[in-house]
């Protein structure tokens, strides 16, 4: 039972990451490869505040989200005034810089050894220690994140995002300040990624930089592609499929080294299959990006 709950908790965390990227890539047509960096920022901010300064989980989570929002401006403000290609490059650079800092600034982040002993989250004065309690917390955060993305992706705001994705020149001609929309949507997306990071840190109680590499960003991108970018259920479904896959391989009794390699092969195969035969993902409305 604990194993099943563990899978569900990890799925809920990845659902947050997938919908946060979908807000950006699926709805607004902006591809970021820095989701893992903001995920890591949320995790490390929350971990450092709770472990070293004795802050509460809620303070950690909110500070992580705010920090991610502020740092997102470093990527978006210079690059989004140019073409979206620069944004992809800037996000990649940011991802590499954040990983490098996490890995090398030993005095603050613990370097490759990471931060152990992160406390389980305290919500409303209590400690959520059980798997079931944490699942409720993670699922609530996933549902709230989903609602945020749904609200921003529909109605007048969503119409502008979709217009930017389909034809930015037209959106500008209609008086829509596309840079403002891109900057705010990226900030919202990174805040959600940081939320996922905080939850992850307090769930596993130990973090190190290897959880926040560019490969993690690519995993989240794969979830969105496989599920279906810009769709209601696609990204959560993609997250569920890609979180469950390694567990299914494990249950098939393969040696862990072989399972890891096989997993990469299956990811690659799935992505090629989706691009060729279902470019809109399992339940997607639009093809990925522009």
């Amino acid at each position: 039972m604990a194993y099943l709950l563990h899978i569900l908790i990890i799925t809920a965390i990845y659902v947050i990451l997938a919908v946060s990227l979908d807000l950006l890539a699926g709805h607004a047509g902006l591809l970021s490869v820095a989701q893992a960096a903001f995920y890591g920022l949320g995790a490390y901010t929350s971990a450092l505040l709770t472990v070293k300064m004795g802050a509460t989980f809620l303070v950690g989570i909110i500070t992580g989200m705010l920090l991610a929002t502020v740092l997102s401006l470093l990527v978006s403000l210079p690059s989004l005034r140019l073409s979206d290609d620069y944004f992809v490059i800037a996000s990649f650079a940011f991802q590499m810089i954040v990983f490098s800092i996490l890995n090398n600034w030993g005095a603050l982040t613990g370097g490759p050894t990471g931060i152990p002993g992160i406390p389980a989250p305290g919500v409303f004065g209590g400690h959520v220690l059980t798997h079931a309690g944490f699942l409720m917390l993670a699922a609530t955060c996933a549902v709230l994140s989903y609602l945020v993305v749904w609200r921003l992706g529909t109605g007048p705001y969503g119409r502008v995002l979709h217009a930017m994705r389909e034809d930015e020149v037209l959106a500008k001609a209609l008086g829509k300040g596309t840079v403002r929309f891109k900057v705010t949507i990226f900030a919202a997306s990174t805040a959600l990624s940081a939320l996922a990071g905080s939850l992850y840190a307090h769930y596993v109680t130990y973090i190190d930089p290897t959880s926040f590499t560019v490969m993690e960003s690519i995993l989240v991108i794969s979830m969105v592609i496989i599920g279906g970018a810009g769709s209601l259920w696609g990204p959560p479904l993609g997250a569920a499929v890609l979180v469950s896959l390694p567990e299914l391989l494990r249950s098939a009794g393969l040696p862990s080294a072989a399972a890891a390699n096989l997993r990469q092969i299956i990811y690659g195969g799935m992505l090629v299959f989706m691009m060729m035969f279902r470019p809109r993902g399992l339940v997607g409305c639009y093809s990925f990006g522009r």
Partner: peptide
């Protein structure tokens, strides 16, 4: 509808 000017729903907090 997209072309209508000054839409309140195009602001982040109002949209949320």
């Amino acid at each position: 509808m997209l072309a209508r000017p000054n839409q309140r729903g195009e602001r982040l907090w109002a949209a949320l």
